[in-house]
Amino acid sequence: MEFLVGHYNYWVVVFLMMLGFYVVISRTHMVKVLVGLSVFQTSVFIFYISLGKIRGGTAPILIDGPAVYSNPLTSVLILTAIVVSIATTALGLALVVRINEAYGTVDEEEIDAIERADEAAVLEAR
């Protein structure tokens, strides 16, 4: 029981991670895939921050007198990762917008169908 409760954060992290992963591999609308990717990323952020937490600790901003500080290193890593994640998401959105301009749709299955039709047309022309 203590094992289950002591790892509660990690169980939820795995659930969220798999949720994001499932959205990424099973949905076809590309913006939704990007949302799934950001769910995945956030679950990794939560995992790191959970690792750095010390029970009864306080935020790593030094105060006078004795105190227990949680781990600042995980905060540093995740802080930069968040800003990088928005930059990569924006890059993905830019690609989605360009794909929409080229194909008229952002649905993976429809794009597949268009590609297949194009290939068939090329073969027939030969």
Partner: peptide
């Protein structure tokens, strides 16, 4: 850098005309 990147990404996506 962060300010410049965020605003220019916003300009790029918001300034794009739809199909």
């Amino acid at each position: 850098t962060v300010f410049g990147t965020m605003v220019s990404i916003f300009y790029a996506i918001a300034g794009r005309k739809g199909l």
